[in-house]
Design a protein around this nucleic acid. Structure first.
Lengths: 207, 207
DNA sequence: GGCTTGACCTAACAAACGTTAGACAGTCTA
DNA sequence: TAGACTGTCTAACGTTTGTTAGGTCAAGCC
């Protein structure tokens, strides 16, 4: 089952004629991957959702794993871009609290609302075969660097509890955010509220 | 694929002769389920790990899903018990901070060190078929009640950031704890340290 | 009109899946 | 010692999986 490497072609450009089908396949794969996980995401299920036959997928992709890897990495890159842009949109003198809340809000929005690709990546990562995880790792690390820097700033400013390391702060933040697909219900929660509460929780201080 | 209900017999007692094999099967299933997820956990893989043949499993269990459900529910019940006992072991006048840190420490220990059953439950829940999830839900809710109460106490005491609801506090706590299997490495982290940092993070206050 | 190419289909392949039926050796009980 | 029960095995079943080979048909170019 695909022993070789997985090529990362998410940046390949051009708007060829078959580009739509390719995107349709990825969209369907992301939707199914998010809810059912790696092994339950079959080529026939994907094909059904797109309206083509399973064999036809191989015109666009070389293997199942290439699809999965593309979805996962597109997902991470999308959150990365969303958070980066949200932070870039802030005033230069924005407070630390403002920047943390903005980053959390952007992450949660990407994860919970535009989130098929994003949470597919979270949901399938641990059960995907090694080559897929290998292909995903650089994307994940690149994104986490944002939170490394934020966490270090927060700790350096003494804005959180005593004895909390930047590393633990980052892991705690990613944990509370990335666990949210488990309980989030659009009719019960508002992302902006959650972002504000998570920020207040971490930066808690007594007046 | 197993449309019926899943009987919850985790409490069935007695030490029959075949009890060891039964426990061996569950142990192996938990170990594999934890790392590979629901669909990659096959009866033949389990049987190989135990040293028997796949068909023999049906002497002890009626279906694959019965095994999975037993593992998941045993896991949740184990954390439930661990946290309950840790809290019960505290002095009656233990501070809120002491109790929170104790609960977090017990949860993380159960999850990260005795954790095949426990993190198998977390890892496989979202991709397991509906009947399995239905069987698991009461166990999860019963355990979460502990954290509901703790979170409410913390909020009522004003010991966390302003505007943080008890519900969000609970979800954030479960998130940062339950995400830890993603990054925890025994050679790099000490559970007791993590528990102290997570507690300080949530109860942060400025001197 | 011929020829190429792009995008799909049909039909099959070997392998792996959960599950079952029936046989068999060992142990316990009467 | 006969018979029942335990725990396992062998061997197959029907289905589903990822994947492949080869065919079809319309659109575009010469």
């Amino acid at each position: 089952m695909t022993a070789g490497e997985i090529v990362d072609d998410t940046a390949s450009g051009g708007t060829r004629s078959g580009e739509k089908s390719r995107r349709d396949i990825l969209d369907a794969a992301a939707r199914i991957l998010r809810r059912r996980g790696y092994h339950a995401t079959t080529l026939r299920t994907i094909a059904d959702a797109v309206g083509i036959k399973a064999g036809s997928i191989y015109y666009h992709f070389a293997s199942k794993d290439e699809i999965i890897a593309a979805v996962m990495n597109d997902g991470v890159d999308a959150v990365h871009r969303a958070v980066t842009e949200a932070l870039a949109g802030l005033a230069a003198n924005a407070s630390l609290e403002e920047r943390l809340e903005t980053a959390i809000r952007a992450h949660l929005h990407a994860l919970l609302e535009f989130g098929d690709y994003t949470s597919a990546g979270l949901n399938a990562y641990s059960e995907a075969p090694e080559p897929v995880r290998d292909a995903a790792r650089p994307h994940r690390l690149a994104y986490e660097a944002i939170w490394d820097r934020l966490a270090e700033e927060i700790v350096a400013a003494g804005a959180t509890g005593a004895g909390v390391s930047a590393r633990s702060l980052k892991l705690a933040l990613l944990g509370m955010m990335n666990w949210s697909p488990e309980w989030y219900r659009p009719e019960r929660h508002r992302v902006d509220d959650l972002a504000r509460e998570f920020t207040a929780l971490v930066l808690a201080r007594r007046g």
